[in-house]
């Protein structure tokens, strides 16, 4: 679909097995360059595993990974020069000191934007010295974020960047990411539970459930296509609506029907209005609603 140069990350048929337990069951992802890509899913869906495989922290059991046009396994070191990573749990070594962590990180990368880092530390109130273990959970998350953003990476991988943050800090993080977007062809791949915050900044979203991507669409398309229709009928309601194109589920709400529609909303409403005394109301679905709708179901085409 996309050429090499238009893609930041390509994942094809990725599987990962941990002694007897299969965490990834054929993951397919295509992250366009210059986009903000949200990876959503319940705990244990395999989001962190996928991100770690992109960095070659974990070895894939099967499948293909391509990052910034390079093979994810063979040229991993080169890839990591241009990728910033924020892990879900900030682990440094025992009794690590903040200044040591910064100087180590800085010296490991060919490019480092110290001015940016200093400004971020200022905004986030991060201390320049002291033990890392003395930091609060939120400050540690922010430290991880600043370390990820420091090397001016072409690709930013963030795993739960909002952990332990209050609304003010969350807003500041979002603004930082928006600023990152203004840079040349920066790509951001975020995995998070904060669906509303993701909706603000994501171009595309992918839902992962049980080691598989069940949905991968642009956010606006998704919000436009996924609707619920509440229909009341004065006569008998139509039969076999589950079979209509676009209809995913039909539930009864007292005397009315609640129809979950995926695309072709106009057509479904058109068909319904053909019935006696049908009154339809279209209910917008939030990203959270859509996610919950799909979380229990299997693979569908996106």
């Amino acid at each position: 679909m996309m050429t090499d140069s238009e893609r930041a990350v390509l994942v094809q048929g990725l599987t990962k097995q941990f002694s007897g337990h299969k965490v990834l069951n054929g993951v397919n992802l295509e992250v366009p360059r210059g986009s903000v890509f949200a990876l959503l899913g319940p705990n244990g869906a395999g989001k962190t595993t996928t991100l770690k495989i992109i960095l070659n922290l974990l070895q894939p059991t099967g499948g293909k990974i391509e990052v910034l046009g390079m093979d994810g396994v063979a040229r991993s070191q080169e890839i990591r020069r241009r990728v910033g990573y924020q892990s879900e749990i900030q682990l440094f070594y025992h009794r690590a000191r903040v200044e040591d962590v910064f100087s180590l990180c800085r010296s490991l990368y060919p490019r480092w934007n110290q001015a940016r880092v200093a400004r971020c530390c200022d905004i986030f109130d991060l201390p320049a010295r002291g033990l890392v273990s003395d930091l609060s959970k939120g400050k540690m998350t922010l430290l991880g974020l600043v370390l990820a953003v420091g090397p001016d990476p072409e690709l930013l991988l963030l795993d739960e960047p909002f952990t332990g943050l209050d609304p003010l800090r969350r807003r500041q993080v979002l603004q930082l990411l928006v600023e990152e977007m203004a840079g040349e062809e920066r790509t951001i791949l975020v995995s998070s539970h904060q669906i509303q915050d993701m909706e603000r900044i994501a171009d595309r979203v992918a839902f992962m459930v049980e080691g598989r991507v069940v949905l991968c669409r642009p956010v606006d398309d998704l919000l436009g296509a996924e609707k619920k229709v509440r229909a009341a009928f004065s006569g008998p309601p139509p039969e076999g609506m589950e079979g209509w194109p676009g209809v995913r589920r039909v539930e009864r709400e007292g005397s009315r029907l609640l129809i979950t529609v995926s695309g072709q909303v106009e057509e479904v409403i058109g068909r319904l209005s053909g019935y006696d005394g049908a009154a339809c109301e279209v209910i917008d679905q939030t990203l959270e609603d859509i996610f919950i709708n799909y979380a229990g179901e299997g693979l569908i085409n996106g």
């Binding site: 807003r171 928006v178 977007m181 203004a182 900044i201 994501a202 171009d203």
Partner: peptide, 14 residues
């Protein structure tokens, strides 16, 4: 676009 994106903390593409 840039200013509004920053102010509202939303994607500039939007």
């Amino acid at each position: 676009v840039r200013d509004l994106a920053l102010q509202l903390a939303i994607n500039p593409n939007t």
